[in-house]
Design a binder for these strands. Structure first.
Lengths: 230, 230
DNA sequence: GGTGCGACATGACAATAGTCAAGTTGCGGT
DNA sequence: ACCGCAACTTGACTATTGTCATGTCGCACC
């Protein structure tokens, strides 16, 4: 971790930003910084956890291979987000695998460093819990989406999360390729294509990896409407 | 918490069993003990968290109401299990609602008690993280199931989790009614019925709330087989 | 011992998503 | 500039699931 730029990104991460300065310094000085190429494995399911991971740049996916061979994408992380906190403290194997889906920079904080610091200051524990809770919450939201919404609605919600605008029209860039988006939303690439087609009548134009939304509120209404009444 | 029986159940809970004796005593002496009737609400989504909850008897479901009115069951807890740990420490509203699905006994540990104890002893934090991680893990597993398995396979896996036997034949009791099982597995009651029908040819007989499995290994094979090749 | 209600099963149908196959397109390598 | 590949789209078909309607059964309540 020689570069000041990366240190400052790390400080802004959800995991570290609420910690007192002295601890952040300790953690950063023990952290390992690595780059990954697209498609490279960061760790494998069932492997023993060695570190907590903070994404500094690029995109990382967490996924699970089921015994029958199909892949379920559990989540996708980018700059400032961290993963592996909970598993780190329990000395159990990873329940998922992690892979870089674009060129990435990832910071690894070795677990022993974290544990010893945690015994000194309970604030660290609370901070880790906060990050873990964020994941928990997002998984709950995903479960709800899968169980209660159609494919097209999930895509609509996905697009809405990408917009920062509040109302009116908006253009967003799809952050990673469509195969991964499909996986993240629990469908096949073909179904994603069709979902996009279905959103066309309500003002969504897809061009390459750009999406144009003519009216956000229309899309928002659609994403929460009852599937049976459309 | 006047009753010794309940205290001893609480001590066996995942949350408390690994804590040092003195802390358990403190927590128990501040805990509130309550009974709930079937269908009674324990807390509502968006409500501010007041306590961590430990189920002593009966069954509790956590669920989310989506804006369009449909209900997604997130998890179901029973004796010895706890929920609400993560949200407790962040002063944020509950992301889910909780309801008793059978007559229940639930112990509530007020959050301030927990926080002050946590500042005294970091072990408490680790213990809470452990419980939280268990939930995280189970949510990840659920996501995988929903995305990569058919309805009948999810039912098969649900039945396998209920058996304690390792091989051969086995009879299990369905722990709660079929409507809730359906919700827990992300399907409608009708689909659950059909899933049971589909499991009949491979040796599963359903009678009331009893399930007879003629050969566990056959069922296990089925639950992990590729849906396309059956 | 009725009576009525809710849980559950089943059939017919519609909607949704997966599968397979056949293009099209964009892009990197030569 | 050409080639080849992988991502993406589209169409036809199938499978799975939700919806609606109907019927049975068990059980609490009078």
């Amino acid at each position: 971790m020689a570069h000041e730029v990366q240190k400052s990104i790390a400080r802004q991460s959800l995991l570290l930003k609420s910690l007192p300065e002295q601890h952040v310094g300790t953690l950063l000085s023990h952290a390992i910084w690595r780059v990954y190429e697209r498609g490279e494995t960061i760790f494998l399911q069932e492997e023993k956890a060695q570190a907590v991971h903070v994404v500094l740049a690029g995109w990382v996916k967490l996924f699970r291979m089921s015994p029958n061979g199909s892949e379920a994408v559990v989540s996708v992380f980018t700059r400032g987000e961290s993963f592996g906190e909970a598993v780190a403290l329990r000395n159990v194997p990873y329940p998922v695998s992690a892979e870089a889906v674009s060129p990435c920079e990832v910071m690894h904080i070795p677990i022993p460093v974290l544990i010893s610091l945690m015994k000194e200051d309970p604030e660290i524990g609370i901070s880790i819990l906060a990050a873990t809770f964020t994941h928990l919450h997002s998984l709950v939201a995903q479960l709800e989406q899968l169980k209660a919404q159609t494919g097209a609605q999930r895509v609509a919600e996905f697009l809405l999360n990408l917009c920062d605008c509040e109302a009116g029209d908006c253009e967003v860039v799809l952050p990673y390729d469509k195969m991964l988006i499909a996986g993240r939303l629990g469908m096949k690439p073909e179904s994603l294509s069709r979902a996009f087609t279905r959103l066309k009548p309500i003002g969504v134009k897809i061009n390459r990896n750009h999406a144009e939304i003519s009216d956000i509120s229309v899309l928002r209404d659609y994403s929460v409407s009852d599937p049976t009444e459309t």
